[in-house]
């Protein structure tokens, strides 16, 4: 039977091969490179030996092995990202350009979605509050909903679609047309120039966009409340922020920072390692969006849980 994942390293034959592969690389390349290459080689050799023995391969085992390797690749990518992000030289000019691309160019979409979200949420909440005679709670309800949950989440989902797919497709296209290789061989440090700058820019810009989305959402909500309840702007703002504390804003910012990092990192990871020509570019853009959204929901769940413990 086929042994799944890295468990086969525990066998005498393969553990020997693993250490041989580790030793085949020099410490100059770094421990992570040695370990990564050794694991890759072991799995490759294992596949060859299995093919030679004409052993039946279980589809589930192969998928599990790919998942393990995928996770290892992702961890290695993140390690490289953090290492390069704190190592000079810093590409400030490119970071500012990316901030403009990610932040400024997303403003129209965020304005529209934030405004509509504010109005729709207010309209849908009113009937429930009317039945309790508690329409005066609308501003604080909307503020809590927008600042705690909706603004970072809506911004992140919009940007996962717009920014994540853009980064995935752009880097994927550069990868398959060998532009990234061309940067690599000219010593231009493409990882720093393409990946670090985009991840930093999206980590900085998504929180700004999320706060902007919350503001626009509250304005949309105010217009609807003013139309129906004739509440003044000062009263609306005063009521809205009555229930909002430092923890709410802190949690919201934390979420937005995590979402921004996720969108940038996933888009870059999928694009930077794209393969298989134009099909690979499409796949990189698509999986960047899907994986970003999936991770955003997981992060939302975790951060909300942690903030509730702190509350």
């Amino acid at each position: 039977m086929r042994t799944t994942s890295l468990a086969f390293l525990s066998t005498k034959r393969h553990s020997g091969r693993f250490f041989y592969n580790c030793c085949a690389f020099t410490p100059a390349q770094g421990f992570d490179v040695c370990l990564y290459t050794a694991v890759r080689r072991c799995i490759f050799q294992k596949r060859i030996s299995l093919a030679n023995e004409t052993t039946q391969q279980s589809g589930l085992g192969a998928q599990w092995e790919e998942l393990t390797l995928g996770l290892y690749d992702a961890v290695r990518f993140l390690g490289r990202l953090f290492r390069q992000a704190i190592r000079p030289p810093f590409d400030f000019h490119e970071i500012i350009r990316q901030c403009f691309e990610i932040g400024y160019r997303s403003l129209p979409l965020i304005t529209l979605t934030g405004f509509v979200t504010g109005i729709v949420f207010t309209k849908q909440s009113r009937p429930s509050l009317v039945s309790f005679g508690a329409t005066s709670w609308l501003p604080s309800l909307i503020a809590i909903a927008m600042i705690r949950a909706l603004a970072p989440l809506v911004t992140a989902l919009i940007c996962a679609g717009k920014v994540g797919s853009n980064i995935g497709a752009e880097l994927g296209s550069m990868k398959v047309t060998e532009q990234i290789d061309a940067m690599e061989v000219s010593g231009a440090r493409p990882f720093d120039f393409l990946v670090v700058t985009r991840v930093v820019a999206s980590t900085l810009m998504i929180p700004v966009l999320a706060m902007y989305c919350a503001f626009v959402g509250l304005m949309g909500s105010f217009l609807n409340i003013y139309q129906n309840e004739k509440t003044s702007f000062i009263t609306f703002i005063s009521d809205a922020f009555e229930q909002i504390g430092f923890l709410d804003i802190g949690t919201s910012l934390t979420k937005a920072i995590a979402f921004g990092f996720t969108i940038g990192a996933v888009g870059c990871y999928k694009g930077f390692y794209a393969s298989n020509g134009t099909q690979g570019v499409g796949k990189a853009a698509n999986t960047a969006v899907v994986l970003s959204m999936f991770l955003i929901f997981i992060e939302e769940l975790v951060i909300v849980q942690v903030s509730n413990w702190l509350r």
């Binding site: 047309t177 060998e178 290789d181 061309a182 940067m183 000219s186």
Partner: peptide, 17 residues
């Protein structure tokens, strides 16, 4: 540093679009 001494001309030119 070694790559700075190498010039690589790619098959499809690999110009930055």
């Amino acid at each position: 540093m070694l790559r700075l001494k190498l010039g690589f001309s790619f098959q499809n030119s690999a110009l930055y679009d």
